[in-house]
């Protein structure tokens, strides 16, 4: 991204725009800008307004009324009623260690060995990439089938090969003790391949002289991986860390396609979307505002923090 700055902004027809240029610009950007005005500017503005409104159910015709902070209060009441929100917050924040502490090191490790061209690495690169082009719905269905209580191969193996009795084998995606863990497993299983390919790509761009001089100094494989490669490919690594933090607030698709929230697998974003689906738009808007207020500083802080580490390294 840094090299972008180097280009000077070229004005096509000297410093002055001709009349023809102006007409061209207006005609070209009219529709995209209208979209931006409606679906970004207006929608964000309206979200803010909606958070303080609700449908007036007492009126005969559907009208809106100002409700002050009622929508926000409703959230805290709901929070106190049962462990729904508590679980959602815990489940969502669980994605952070899963992506940053498990998936990322594993991806660096795997990307490195692909870079070193271990046996069959060409084939693995293709296979690891496959989940990223297959529909998440299809991936989720095949994954779910593996863990299914009646048709799943995993339970079949546990029952017939490990001779576990049927009652001891959990119904993985329904049992609240296991369901969320299976979702995290899915996140790693389906998501790691794309990271591996990206990190592999970043590693191939590292100048070979750097690697060779390290090897002459007798640097071992693991030091090479984490002390030479990681600092140099830091921009890619930090993007993944930032993504990991963002996932906390945007992860809704896993519960949606794997469990429909059963087994207490809901996440914050999943609950916000399900409120929209239930027609509770104004309550959902208030939840969205709270989400942004918490998410934005956290994401920006992560950006700042990852920028601090190895900020001298240029790619």
């Amino acid at each position: 991204m840094k090299e972008k700055v180097k280009h000077t902004l070229s004005t096509p027809s000297g410093d002055k725009l001709w009349k023809g240029d102006k007409i061209f610009i207006v005609l070209m950007i009219a529709i995209p800008m209208l979209h931006f005005a409606l679906f970004t500017l207006y929608v964000n503005f309206d979200s803010f307004i909606m958070a303080f409104q609700d449908v007036d159910y007492t009126a005969e015709v559907n009208t809106l009324k100002w409700v002050g902070l009622d929508n926000f209060k409703k959230f805290f009441t709901e929070w106190g009623e049962n462990d729904l929100w508590m679980r959602a917050v815990i489940n969502s924040f669980g994605y952070l260690p899963v992506t940053v502490c498990v998936m990322l090191p594993l991806s660096i490790f795997a990307g490195y060995f692909l870079y070193r061209k271990i046996p069959l690495s060409g084939l693995y690169k293709i296979l690891f990439f496959l989940p990223s082009i297959i529909s998440i719905v299809v991936l989720a269905i095949v994954f779910r089938n593996m863990f299914d209580a009646s048709i799943g191969p995993i339970n079949w193996i546990l029952e017939n090969i490990f001779k576990m009795s049927k009652d001891d084998i959990p119904n993985w995606l329904v049992d609240e003790k296991y369901a969320m863990w299976i979702l995290y497993l899915y996140a790693i299983w389906a998501g790691i391949g794309y990271n591996v390919v990206l990190l592999f790509g970043a590693m191939t761009r590292v100048p070979t002289e750097v690697i060779e001089s390290g090897r002459l100094d007798g640097v071992g494989i693991f030091r090479e991986m984490f002390q030479i490669f990681v600092p140099i490919i830091w921009p890619t690594v930090s993007t993944m860390i930032i993504f990991g933090v963002t996932t906390i607030f945007t992860q809704y698709i896993h519960p949606m396609v794997l469990t429909s929230g059963n087994g207490k697998t809901y996440t914050i974003a999943y609950l916000i979307i399900s409120k929209v689906n239930q027609g509770r738009l104004y309550y959902s808007a208030a939840l969205g505002i709270m989400l942004i207020v918490i998410a934005l500083p956290m994401i920006e802080f992560t950006k700042w923090l990852t920028g601090k580490i190895y900020d001298t390294v240029e790619t």
């Binding site: 679906f39 964000n44 309206d46 909606m50 945007t250 974003a269 409120k275 738009l281 808007a285 969205g288």
Partner: peptide, 12 residues
């Protein structure tokens, strides 16, 4: 994150 404005987008 555009999750914040799902409700408003749906309304629009």
């Amino acid at each position: 994150p555009n999750l914040g404005n799902i409700a408003a987008t749906y309304k629009l």
